[in-house]
């Protein structure tokens, strides 16, 4: 029974393969030809598809991929009903709110916090859980410019070392969530292909624990 695994193109895929290789999965072709989007591990009857990171949850949700490896931040933003069956413990960082440390909210014309972010869904949910209303400003990159140029009061973004924030005079004010690479599994596939999926997932869980 063939299974399909969706991987995020680039560095994340390489790291995922390190773990998968420990589980006996091989796919030497993967890093030779960067234009191909589909690869096979004939021996284990596994098909790999290379997709944009933000699309991994979509492929898995629709069941065209049985499982996928993707960051928790992307999963949170997608908000889809997937099984999240292993923390692969790499790509560690956090989602956090950052802003000017000492800036007082002195705006007379708006009492609503303006949040610039690549993760509007995460931002809405986070502030809703705190009972705060926000105005969400969706950006696709260089989010730090938001407070700098007065576009927003704060940003919600991925923070790894925090250097970009410091260089732009910003500071983390609240942590939102811990992020790392996760194994997302399609709900139907887990049950229909249980004989293949269950042992593989257990191997992956074990490989992560051992490393």
């Amino acid at each position: 029974m063939q299974i399909t695994i969706a991987l995020a193109k680039g560095r994340l895929a390489e790291k995922a393969m390190v773990i998968l290789e420990k589980c006996g999965i091989e796919c030497a072709d993967m890093f030779k030809d960067s234009r191909k989007l589909i690869f096979f591990d004939e021996k284990n009857d596994i098909r790999f598809i290379m997709v944009k990171p933000t699309d991994v949850p979509t492929y898995v949700d629709h069941g065209v991929a049985d499982m996928g490896v993707v960051g928790k931040d992307t999963l949170m933003e997608a908000g889809l009903p997937l099984y999240e069956m292993a923390d692969l413990k790499y790509g560690k960082c956090k989602l956090a709110i950052a802003g000017y440390p000492n800036k007082q909210d002195n705006s007379l014309t708006t009492s609503i916090l303006r949040v610039a972010t690549k993760y509007p869904e995460v931002a809405k949910k986070y502030y809703a859980s705190k009972g705060e209303s926000i105005e969400c400003i969706k950006l696709n990159g260089s989010v730090e410019l938001g407070p700098l140029l007065g576009l927003s009061d704060v940003i919600l973004d991925i923070v790894e070392s925090g250097r970009t924030l410091v260089e732009n005079g910003l500071e983390v004010t609240e942590d939102v969530a811990e992020v790392s690479a996760r194994l997302a599994v399609n709900r139907a596939s887990l049950k229909i292909k249980a004989s293949v999926m269950k042992p593989l997932i257990e191997k992956i869980q074990k490989a992560v624990e051992e490393s």
Binding site: V60, D61, N186, A188, K191, I192
Partner: peptide, 9 residues
Amino acid sequence: GVTPGIGFP
């Protein structure tokens, strides 16, 4: 209930 070919119940 789930079946191959569709990821939803």
